[in-house]
Amino acid sequence: MNVTINGTAHELPSGATVTQAVRKLTEATSGVAVAVNDEVVSRGAWDSTALAEADRVEVLTAVQGG
């Protein structure tokens, strides 16, 4: 299954969850937020939310700004 994580194509096993997508980038669980196809997936739902082919996953954190 192909998904996009932060703009980069990734191959994940079929039925992979949001947690597995996040783990491609970081082990962190705090200070991080995820949107799938422009909808926020709350941290408590990462394990139970399965991704689908061509999903766009965005993993964001706070950086210097403003």
Binding site: N6, G7, V32, V59, T61, V63, Q64, G65, G66
Partner: peptide
């Protein structure tokens, strides 16, 4: 203090 939100950079 303000911060911005950006894609996580590993």
């Amino acid at each position: 203090t303000t911060v911005a939100m950006r894609r996580l950079d590993p």
